[in-house]
């Protein structure tokens, strides 16, 4: 079947299998390898992306369901793809050491952007609740929490196009 999806600001038209998952569309059809698969059960959140502005686990969305929609992955966040700056959430993850091996990071960052778009000034408890569906084995979540709270100091951290100042 044919789908039209805008991925990281670029409109695409692709022929895909009806049973293809969105995460495989992003990785294999669109060639965007940052979004990872960490489990088979929608438990870990490594595959989290924004679909029409809402964070979703792309292993549990069919490509067909995204037809006509807009997807943002970590590659399209902020301005680095066009030579610009990192998104406030990306920058905060670096500043607070909110990542180690990096595997959960693209999903964790996108879930954090989704969280901040819904709740720009979350409490610690709200950040922990908001990221409950995103697993990390390296950080114990300590610095991820700090990173999201730091990012929340940027007023537009919930917007995928936001950039930190150079």
């Amino acid at each position: 079947m044919q789908v039209q999806i805008t991925v990281n600001k670029k409109p695409r038209t692709d022929e895909v299998e009806p049973r293809q998952l969105l995460v495989h569309y992003l990785r294999d059809t669109a060639g965007l390898k940052a979004t990872n698969v960490g489990c088979d059960t929608t438990s870990c959140g490594a595959c989290t992306v924004l679909l029409d502005g809402v964070s979703v686990k792309s292993c549990t969305v069919l490509t067909a369901q995204a037809d006509g929609g807009t997807v943002v992955t970590v590659e399209g966040l902020g301005g680095t793809a066009d030579g610009g700056q990192m998104h406030p959430v990306q920058s905060a993850f670096r500043e607070e050491h909110g990542l180690q091996c990096g595997f959960c990071t693209p999903g964790m960052v996108m879930a954090s952007v989704g969280l901040l778009s819904e709740n720009p000034n979350p409490t610690e408890h709200e950040v922990r609740e908001g990221l409950e569906g995103n697993y990390c084995r390296c950080t114990g979540y300590h610095n991820i929490l700090r990173a999201v709270l730091l990012a929340a100091q940027s007023p537009d951290a919930g917007k995928p196009e936001a950039q930190v100042s150079a």
Binding site: R27, K33, A34, T35, N36, V37, V74, E75, L77, G78, T80, A81, M86, Q90, F93, R94, E95, H97, L99, C101, G102, F103, T105, P106, V109
Partner: peptide, 21 residues
């Protein structure tokens, strides 16, 4: 000191075995 490896991991994702081209 913040990490040298982070910008790539945060903006392009790491190159894990499944990502190899």
């Amino acid at each position: 000191v913040v990490r040298n490896e982070d910008p790539e991991l945060l903006t392009k994702g790491g190159t894990y075995t499944d990502d190899l081209i």
